[in-house]
Design a protein around this nucleic acid. Structure first.
Length: 207
DNA sequence: TGTCCGATTGGT
DNA sequence: CCAATCGGACAG
């Protein structure tokens, strides 16, 4: 397991779909208050390609207090709050000024599982991080981490395991964006086909 | 300021 | 299948 942080160049690539695929198999780490590592292997992602993507918060180059983070340089965390109760963790990609981002939808728990169990009391191990809201609770991610630098120490992503072979990656439509009309059908969700930790709503689709 | 609605989740 | 729950975006 390679613990080197993904370099800036990984994130500033121009193809957000490629970054979404290459993020699979990497390790997302968020040290807890005591500095102990709490982490998981990324097994499901979705690409959001503003400003042309109707499903993106930055559709039409919308610039508001919330979306401003998506215009940062690749390698910045974009964390937002939805449904009155959940936070969602995204990775900003491309160069500064272009609002592309990848939503991390599911992880396979790796380190700090005891901490995650405490934060998600009552849930079984396979139900700790198999959803975008769930993984934020398990890793302790909230809006305080919005705009954090992924090359810093508060939240970061390591190279992780050897590249996931293309044949092991499945793809299909993104989840929960029915309002996005024709953009909702694009196969911009990616996941590791055999992972038992893919989100529930994503599980139904065999890409 | 008022209304509408959401990149979800968990329980029925 | 649907309620929960509240901040963001936008109209007025």
């Amino acid at each position: 397991m390679n613990t080197r942080k993904l370099p800036r160049k990984f994130y500033t690539r121009t193809d957000v779909l490629l970054v979404a695929r290459r993020l699979l198999g990497r390790r997302l780490v968020v040290p807890d208050r005591d500095g102990a590592r709490v982490s998981g292997i990324i097994v499901e992602t979705e690409a959001y390609r503003g400003p042309e993507d109707r499903a993106s918060h930055a559709f039409g180059d919308r610039r508001t207090k919330r979306t401003e983070t998506m215009y940062r340089i690749g390698g910045t965390a974009y964390v937002y709050f939805v449904y009155g109760m959940y936070d969602q963790f995204n990775v900003v990609t491309n160069v500064e000024g272009i609002p592309h981002a990848v939503l991390v939808r599911a992880l396979e728990p790796a380190e700090g599982i005891e901490v995650m169990r405490r934060r998600r009391r009552g849930r079984s191990d396979h139900d700790l991080t198999n959803g975008p809201g769930k993984l934020c609770i398990a890793l302790g991610i909230d809006r305080a981490l919005d705009d954090a630098d992924l090359l810093g120490d508060r939240v970061f992503i390591e190279e992780g395991r050897r590249r996931v072979p293309p044949g092991a990656i499945a793809s299909g439509p993104r989840i929960g964006i029915g309002y996005a009309a024709e953009w909702a059908d694009r196969p911009w969700r990616f996941w590791i086909r055999d992972s038992p930790c893919v989100s529930h709503r994503g599980r139904a689709w065999r890409g």
